[in-house]
Design a protein around this nucleic acid. Sequence first.
RNA 1: GGGCCUCUAGCUCAGUUGGUUAGAGCAACGGACUUUUAAUCCGUGGGUCGUCGGUUCGAUCCCGACGGGGCCUACCA
Length: 499
Amino acid sequence: MSDDLIQTEDAFEDDLPEQIAVRLAKRDRLNEMGDAYPVSVPVTTTIDAVRAENPGLEADVATGKIVGIAGRIVFLRNTGKLCFATLQAGSGERIQAMLSLDKVGEERLQDWKDLVDLGDHVFVSGEVITSKRGELSILADEWLMAAKTIRPLPNLHNDLGEEFRVRHRYIDLIVRDRAREVVKIRSKVMQSLRRTFEEEAYLEVETPMLQTIHGGASARPFKTHSNAFDTELFLRIAPELFLKRAVVGGIDRVFEINRNFRNEGADRTHSPEFAMLEAYQAYGDYNSIADLTQKLIQNAAMDVFGTHQVVLEDGTVNDLGGNWPRISMYESLSEAAGVTITPETPIAELKKLASSVGIEIEHPLAGKYVEELWEHFVKGDLVNPTFVIDFPVDTSPLTRDHRSKSGVVEKWDLYIRGYEQATGYSELVDPVVQRARFVEQVTLAAAGDPEAMKLDEDFLKALEFGMPPSGGMGMGIDRLLMSLTGLGIRETIMFPLVK
RNA sequence: GGGCCUCUAGCUCAGUUGGUUAGAGCAACGGACUUUUAAUCCGUGGGUCGUCGGUUCGAUCCCGACGGGGCCUACCA
């Protein structure tokens, strides 16, 4: 693929694809006659408005209404003395323009045929009519080039290849309704989430993305360097430790929607940068924050689709309605595995069980085996939204111990259609226990675990000033869009990273 | 990171069991056409068959390396 065609005057001469050379020549002619890229064109209305204001007209009707509209040409049908073009607005709405010899005159009709290509933005003004076949049209008195296109649009009769769509999303958005729709859905979901937060009296904040110590999750970070401070910086893997500082400071109900960066593998459900929602609620716990999470998602479904039963890309229905069940990790695992597993089950036994079902991992923490076993035995069967609650303590360093069960923490993961959609905690606010947990992590890091956290002294100091008992949650926005649409992550992100 | 597959015109795709001139539809160019809407009809041009190297009389095709992409797998959300 040659992307640097239009660089130098010399390049015009030689190896330019025919279609581009032809269009550049047309551009030159337009500039000689006037302007191929005028600063504006005298539009009086929009394609959407013309359609909305002229519904259900009979065929071959003249309304007497004169309008000026602009749009991108997506179909072109030139005949001898009457030319047709289909103009598309940014919304995807289309309308037909008709250019006849007796209205625009011989010269301008010839200019149209000579200079206008598929993909061009044009302005036409004239009367709103319907054609003999009943198509709502603008019968032009005049036309103007609004912006000349140099590259040809792909044909609109075959689906674009997936790679082409991702690499040229701007073209995908022009030619594919669904691409535009997904952008719209995403925007509406964001509005809905913010609306729910506002109703619940949360404040939206923005915390650092460039951090000197990365914490709040376990993942490999992207590294960068600050010239001014001459120091290594990390792109954040999570905002958690800063949002908790905000809660310490008295921002009792706080949320952030922003990007996280994780230097891990990319696949259908993982992107190196992804939009994350985190929320914290002083005087709440993992139950109240689960309630909030359910409300956020159900409101989003209702606001965007008007139902909790959302229809996915493949035609299946994702039922997000009702009160979502909360199942215990240890109990659901014990049931599915046919063996009683508790926080007291020795690691050797867990290892043996894991090995017997083909999970071969070496890890010093019993909790890791429990989570792996749970994913093996239970995860696949969870289709409808389900909160899996009460996780092993040793894999959840930022979560408080369970109020009554020993060996587990007050943490849930929300699963929807087999994917982890969100996670929530009763937050660990005891600075002494938090320090001890961090030290364990750092010890692991020293033992060669690159994802273990470094000690964030300033965060610990904040806790020492007293963080109220709190519930907190984190939710992947891209994944929420996936749950609501059934699309892959690279379709829910408008411009996903490509090499 | 490992395994398998893939890359042909502006776009979507055929095809060549190694042979002289690599095809289609849409798009483009020339012509005809005042009611088309994937307009139609006649005619024309357009390709380093991902890149580099090897084998061969001859490579788009076989082999190797590199690059892009996909699927599975591993890690993470």
